[in-house]
């Protein structure tokens, strides 16, 4: 009896020690669980850096996780839930709405949301709304519909803001930058789980953060995070860097290329 219970825990610990949690995961315990033994959570990602090459078509990121000191009984009846998210770099985002003005569609209203993740990919054992109530999810900022979207500046009509929030989520979902998979986290053994997150082809570069949330009977008990760097590589990165860091020189090079191309053609195709 003893051995049976120990095996999964040992396996989990072993895996955790073996190092696929290699970038140190910060431990953020949230509230004391009801059981005297504290659960542990370790996560690791399949890679800590994703390179965007010129033929980048998107990538999959696998997040592994090990649950330690899990309560046997709760595990058996599926009381543990895991949500894994990957949040892209944050920036302000402006949603604009068009209206017909003199027969022409033009942007008339806009709402700017502060510091929202440019990309957000989420996988969970089951739909997050089934794990927790909307109020708590919104407080934690877990789940597509529960990300904090706070407008910058004065916005007159609160009802309109709700429309803009909804439009924001819809646009992000349709562009593939926001994704959710409510069956994307699978337990491969009672205490080991694997989450697959999809990074779209238009994933923004910068530091992304993979979050893993462990819920026990609907209560968030543990949270882990790991950084993931998404970098443009090779020529693309050199060009982007040059355009933003040396814009004047970059502009001069653009003009030079144009002059050489135009002049070269006139020399190459000269009729005499």
């Amino acid at each position: 009896m003893m051995t049976i219970r120990l095996i999964p825990c040992l396996a989990a610990l072993l895996l955790a020690i073996l190092g696929w949690a290699e970038p140190a995961a910060a431990q953020v315990p949230i509230g004391p669980g009801p059981s005297p033994v504290r659960e542990g959570l370790e996560i690791g990602t399949s890679t800590s850096e994703i390179a965007i090459t010129s033929d980048f078509r998107g990538a999959d990121l696998t997040v592994f996780g090990a649950l330690t000191n899990a309560d046997e009984l709760f595990l058996a009846i599926g009381q543990y839930d895991v949500v894994v998210t990957l949040e892209g770099p944050r920036d302000a985002a402006t949603v604009r709405r068009k209206e017909r003005v003199f027969g022409i569609w033009m942007n008339t209203q806009s709402v700017t949301f502060e510091q929202v993740p440019e990309s957000y990919s989420m996988a969970s054992t089951r739909p997050v709304e089934d794990i927790q109530g909307p109020t708590s999810l919104t407080r934690m900022g877990v789940g597509l519909d529960h990300l904090a979207l706070s407008p910058i500046g004065y916005v007159g009509n609160a009802l309109a803001v709700a429309d803009f929030r909804e439009a924001y989520r819809r646009l992000k979902l349709s562009s593939g930058l926001y994704q959710r998979d409510s069956a994307g986290v699978r337990f491969v053994s009672p205490s080991l789980f694997r989450a697959t997150l999809r990074l779209p082809a238009n994933v923004p570069d910068g530091v992304h953060v993979a979050h893993a949330y462990l819920f026990k009977s609907g209560e968030l008990i543990l949270q882990r995070e790991l950084p993931l760097r998404v970098v443009k590589t090779g020529l693309e990165q050199t060009i982007t860097d040059a355009a933003h860091q040396q814009p004047l020189a970059y502009g001069l090079v653009c003009v030079l290329v144009a002059l050489v191309t135009g002049w070269g053609a006139s020399v190459l195709f000269r009729k005499d």
Partner: peptide, 13 residues
């Protein structure tokens, strides 16, 4: 002039 497929648009940075 034609009604756009989506009245909302998004710009990020």
């Amino acid at each position: 002039v034609i009604t756009p497929a989506d009245l909302y648009s998004l710009s990020v940075g």
